[in-house]
Nucleic acid binder design. Structure first.
Lengths: 212, 212
DNA sequence: CGTCCCCTTGACCTGCTTCAAATTCCGTGG
DNA sequence: CCACGGAATTTGAAGCAGGTCAAGGGGACG
C-alpha cells in the first residue's frame, strides 16, 4: 500500500530523545513508523509526566493530525526511529470501510486510548503493568516483530511508570513480583511471556481491550 | 446544518438509565444529542466501573461509530435524553478542514480523551474533580447552556467517582473541601463557579486541556 | 409515612509514594 | 582489555492520599 511512494526520498530518521513533533506545532506530514519506538506525552508544570500514546513499527504518527488540528502534545523518539513522511491528508482513496489502513489505525488509536482510561482510572499497579506488557506484545506480534513468545521491549522502568501512572520505584517492585510469579521474563530490553492467558487474567481485561 | 433533516421524524427519546447503545452492537445511526446527558463506560468483572466519555447537548454520540467499527462500550442515559438520528456515515460534504461539525467533534473527542489520560494517570483527587467540573462548565457554555457562572450538573457523586477514578466517599470529601475553599458551589444539580481562574489553577491544566 | 437513593461523617486500613542509598548496567575513552 | 561515569535498576524504611467499612441523615416519591 505504501509502495506507491518513493521510499528513499521520503524516509526520515530520528535519534533517541529527538522530537518527532513539538507542542503547538502544526505537523506538515504524518509519519509512518518503519522501525523504532516513539511516544506522545504531556508534562505538568511540576514535572509530573504522562505518556498518552506509543508509536510502534507499522503505526501512523499521528492519525489525528489528518483531522486538521495542531499537535497539542509533543512526540519524542524512545529509540532511534526510521519513518516515512506521508501527506497529512485523509487518504480518501482508502474508502470509509474502517477495516483497512488509515481508518483502521485511527479507530484503533481511539479504542486503545479508551482502554487506557479504564486502566488508569480503575486498575491496580499489577493490572496496569500487565496491560501494558500485553499490549506491547500483541502490537509487536501484529507488526510481525514477535518471535515465538518474545519481542523487543526498549522501555525503561521510568517510561513504564509514565505510561502506567505509577512511580519508577513501584514499577520496579511490581515487575519483581511478576517475575517471581513467572508471569513475565524481562531483561536487557527483551520481553518474554511464558503464558499469555495467565497474563491476560492478571491484566483484568474485558475482551475488548485488544486483539488476539 | 442539521435543518436539512426532517427533525420530527428522526427524533428519538431515551429515559434515564436507558441504553443508547449496547456492548458489541453495531449502531445503525449516530445520535446528535439535543437535550440531556449520557455516558459511555466499561465495567470490570468485579464491578469496578470507569466512565470513558460524556455526551452533552450538541455532542455526537459517537463520532467513532462513523469509522465503521462496533461500539465496544455501552452508552447509557444519565438523564432523559432527546436526540436526532443521523446516518452513520462520514459526512464528506463537510470537507476535511477540521474546524467544523463532524470532524471538529471527532477531533475534540480524541483530544478530551487524551487529557483525561493525563488526569487519571497523574493528578490528585482535587485536581481530578476540578478538571471534571471545569470541563462540564466549558462544554455547557459552548452549547449555550450556561447562565452567567452556572450551569446544570445532573451527575451524582457516584457518577463523578466513576468518571474521575475515585470512590464516592472520597469524591464527597473532595467536594466538601472545594466548597469550603470557595472554589465551587454545587447543590441540587446546579453548578456555580465563582472564579474560573482559581478553579483552573487548582485543576493543574496545561493550556491545552480545553477551550476557553 | 415508609422506602429508596443519595449524601454525609467517622474510624481504620493499605497500596502506593517518597526519600535515600546501594548496586548493576553499559557506553566511552584510555 | 580495563577504568571510568552516568544512567538505570534495586532495596529499605517511613509516610500519606485515598480506599474500605459502617452507620446515620435527608429528600423525593408513591
Amino acid at each position: 500500500m505504501l509502495s506507491q511512494v518513493a521510499e528513499g526520498e521520503n524516509q526520515v530518521h530520528f535519534r533517541m530523545h529527538q522530537f518527532l513533533a513539538r507542542e503547538n506545532e502544526k505537523p506538515d506530514a504524518m509519519l509512518y513508523v518503519q522501525e523504532g519506538w516513539a511516544c506522545r506525552y504531556r508534562l505538568l508544570s511540576d514535572g509530573r509526566r504522562q505518556i498518552t500514546a506509543l508509536y510502534l513499527p507499522g503505526d501512523y504518527c499521528d492519525p489525528q493530525w489528518a483531522l486538521g488540528g495542531v499537535s497539542s502534545q509533543p512526540v519524542v523518539a524512545i529509540t532511534n526511529v526510521r519513518a516515512l513522511r506521508l501527506p497529512c491528508r485523509i487518504p480518501s482513496h482508502a474508502g470509509f470501510d474502517g477495516r483497512h489502513g488509515f481508518w483502521q489505525a485511527l479507530s484503533g488509536t481511539i479504542e486503545r486510548q479508551a482502554n487506557w482510561l479504564v486502566t488508569l482510572g480503575r486498575k491496580t499497579a499489577l493490572e496496569r503493568v500487565a496491560h501494558l506488557l500485553l499490549e506491547l506484545f500483541e502490537r509487536m506480534r501484529q507488526a510481525g516483530l514477535a518471535y515465538g513468545q518474545q519481542c523487543a521491549m526498549p522501555l525503561t522502568q521510568m517510561e513504564i511508570a509514565d505510561m502506567t501512572g505509577l512511580t519508577p520505584v513501584h514499577v520496579n517492585r511490581t515487575l519483581q513480583s511478576m517475575r517471581a510469579r513467572g508471569l513475565v521474563e524481562l531483561q536487557s530490553k527483551w520481553l518474554r511471556i511464558p503464558e499469555l492467558p495467565a497474563l491476560r487474567e492478571v491484566a483484568a481485561l474485558t475482551g475488548h481491550d485488544m486483539a488476539g
